[in-house]
Design a protein around this nucleic acid. Sequence first.
RNA 1: GGGCCGUUAACUCAGUCGGUAGAGUAUCUGCCUUUUAAGCAGAGAGUCGCUGGUUCGAGCCCAGCACGGCCCGCCA
Length: 542
Amino acid sequence: MSKEKKLAESTTFTDEMKTDIRKKKLWPYGEANKVLKRHDYNTDHIYTFETGFGPSGFPHIGTFGEIVRTEFIINGLKDAGFKTKLIAFSDDLDGLRKVPEGMPEWLKEHLGKPVSAIPDPYGECSSFSEHMNSKLRKLLEWMGIEYQFKTSKECYENGDFDEAIKILLSNYKMLEKIIAPTLSKETLENWYPFFPLCEKCGSVLTTVVKEVNLEDYTVRYACTKTHGEVQGCGYEGWQTALGGHGKMTWRVDWPMRWYALGVDYELYGKDLIESFKIGKRIMNQIFRTKEPENMFYEMFLDENGAKISKSKGKGLTVEEWLKYGTIESLYLLMYRRPRKAKELSFNIIPSYVDDVTSLSANYHSNSHPEEHDFNFITRFQGKEKTFPGISYMLICNLMTALKSDDKKLIKNYLSKQKELTEEDIESDFLNDMIEKASRYYHDFVTAKKPEFELSNEDIFLMGQFVGLLYTELTSEEIHNAVYTIARDNGRNPRDFFKIIYLVFIGQDRGPRVGTFVKMIGQEKTIEIVSNAIKSFLSAESV
RNA sequence: GGGCCGUUAACUCAGUCGGUAGAGUAUCUGCCUUUUAAGCAGAGAGUCGCUGGUUCGAGCCCAGCACGGCCCGCCA
């Protein structure tokens, strides 16, 4: 009885959800609809997404982008009431081909071994790949992304892939037919879809299969191949192809994962388009099932338009972006046009931060906020997020003009120029933004603070100036006082301004003196100047 | 040889169901009696790569073309 009722409810719900999400056009919804259609909008199915990661180097911004972009689609599904799962898969059985730049030379003796069998060069984790995995996981956890972590090693060893391996090896001829067109003649001669792990030297890159027994899925192999700098040790023996004693070759490994893990969707970089096509054929012809729904994304490029690579370690990192930009700005970077190559450099960060602010305003005044970019870049927390309309670039400019990144000062200035509530001024968002703009200002805008000296006459002038401040003045009066004092003492006003700025903020330039003094308050100004002069005098007398 | 992406103001880029083309920077004008990657107010600036198609209506959808860039054609 209750079961029937439940079913009826669930069906009605499904129809509503179908029509609702089908109408939506933003790219993550487009992808969501592809994957929903695959299971006829079934609300009980757990829609499974995979992202791949090669732990032979540090995770770069592209790896991170793949996960975030996948999460956009997942969040669209979740928001519509569907169940999802994200598998972050680390291929830690991949053999190390060369010592990555900046890593110790002793790694050379481990070339050819799976990265999970190589010690951590930084001595922090149980293996090379563990180190890379932990870097990625730390980031994902910090961001609160829900995912299931799987590694190649554990899946092979658990036997999760055994059934798939049996199917692949039993269909060797068909497999060869699919792969052959992509291989050179020489490679094809000794080609076999399985690389045993050499029992003697531990290499996975140098073994060649000589004979196969399909009764028990064992292979006879010889460790005789040369792969780049790695040479086989010459060992020969029998080995089972199951249970993690080797791995399938790359183009075969990928579809095998789709099959074994039930992957419904995967994003991949443009460089893997050809590999995906092979994987698709393997899925269709050997596993006799449909390949995952999918989309490829464009590469991130460095400032010179070159592809960012793991081995070279170039390009902007996620950490670097977050040092200067808000988390939402990074999400926006990933959200916008995944299929357009983007050149990454520090100077694009301010505009992304400010775009988030305008998107926020747009979202909160929009007639149909239910389908809005802002939902994705806030991970569907848009309603709770209102960003005060303060420009990051304005803050940078203010800091430059004021030659100071003092938070209170900046806030004070902002509150004079813009209409901001007390809440806005004290918001975490503004604090965060000022801190980030401050770093940007320090690292990209400012120069070193010049050292300066004051003559007795300079100090005398400052004394006169401060003396006036005991009376309440307007900003104009203060400003004019600078001229008056300078002229009365036969000094160039320009020089006096310079002295004032040096005493105020240690720079020879700054904002308009009158407004600046009013901003920090006359009393406070007196205090700052008096202290500065005192400390200068005491330093002088030593 | 195969495939993909891009082309919107001088520059960098947005463009949310197909409904009068947007921002920042730069330029020009005015204002603030030093200066700054200043600030404020305003202005000019685009046949949305080209050609055709669908539509009452196209930057957006479809086809073809041109130019630019990238990936694959080693290995994983």
